[in-house]
């Protein structure tokens, strides 16, 4: 696929989607460092942030190699502007309270586990390798976030209300997991990835059973917010990038 320029563009685009979502999720998570409700949780969130940023590095460095224009992981992370980012809108949503961050993470983790499991049989060797490595981390993230969603959803009256509010505000962003466009179709036809829509049933079941246990009600809305994976972002991403990219923008090439 890498020798055919059109196919290469699809692969590059698809890899950016993987890497950018991990990067932006990781950055958002890192914003909790020093602010989490308890010390144990603070360290756990920082660990997860680092896992996600590590995953972003794997996907983005592969994307840079596929693109073949000499851009590395750092160039892609720090020197692109918002419209070139391909992350899910869900990832860039502000942290809100601890419950909202946790809910965002839970919805994302469940999808990641299902996606990465399918990618283990990709015909692209590097995609298989990255998926195998990251799946181990993501399985722990998913177990942990599901456990906490149940504890807080089925916790006190206040924690329940906050989790239900988080679910309602984030639910419209989950449609984007399953949006399928020509990049996805090209990847699926080449045997490199799966069609996103094929994961929906399993995801709904997986998430539904946890939300049931958490006594949370899945919103009925059919309203969907999408666009992140094609570069149409909410206003939040620009602010996030201003923070994340500041150093490289102000002091190009700075290193330690």
């Amino acid at each position: 696929m890498q020798n055919d320029p059109i196919a290469r563009d699809y692969l590059f685009e698809w890899l950016l989607r993987r890497g950018d979502s991990a990067l932006i999720m990781g950055h958002r998570m890192s914003e909790w460092c020093g602010h989490a409700p308890v010390l144990e949780e603070d360290i756990a969130l920082a660990n997860i942030a680092l896992d996600l940023i590590g995953q972003a590095r794997l996907w983005l460095s592969y994307a840079g190699a596929v693109e073949g224009r000499g851009r590395g992981e750092d160039d892609l992370a720090f020197l692109r502007d918002a419209w070139d980012f391909r992350n899910l809108l869900l990832a860039e949503q502000p942290n809100g309270d601890f419950g909202k961050t946790l809910m965002r993470h839970f919805l994302y983790d469940a999808h990641q586990v299902l996606l990465l499991e399918k990618l283990l049989s990709s015909r692209d060797e590097r995609i298989c390798e990255i998926s195998e490595k990251t799946l181990k981390e993501v399985r722990y993230h998913a177990e942990r976030s599901a456990d906490l969603v149940v504890r807080l959803g089925d916790g006190t009256q206040e924690s329940h209300q906050r989790m239900q509010a988080a679910l309602e505000s984030l639910w419209p962003y989950t449609s984007e997991f399953f949006e399928t466009d020509e990049t996805d179709r090209a990847m699926a036809e080449a045997g490199l990835a799966v069609l996103p829509e094929t994961l929906k049933e399993d995801w709904s079941e997986m998430v539904g059973s946890v939300l049931d246990a958490a006594t949370l009600i899945v919103p009925k809305t059919g309203f969907a917010r999408t666009g992140g994976t094609t570069g149409r972002h909410s206003e939040h991403l620009g602010h996030l990038l201003a923070d994340m990219q500041f150093l490289q923008r102000a002091y190009p090439g700075a290193a330690w």
Binding site: V38, L39, E40, E41, I43, A44, N47, Y140, R144, D147, R151
Partner: peptide, 17 residues
């Protein structure tokens, strides 16, 4: 040592800390 509401969370926190 660490703080946790129950054994299951204590194990998870121990893993992370």
């Amino acid at each position: 040592s660490l703080h946790a509401p129950d054994a299951e969370m204590a194990l998870k926190n121990a893993r992370d800390v």
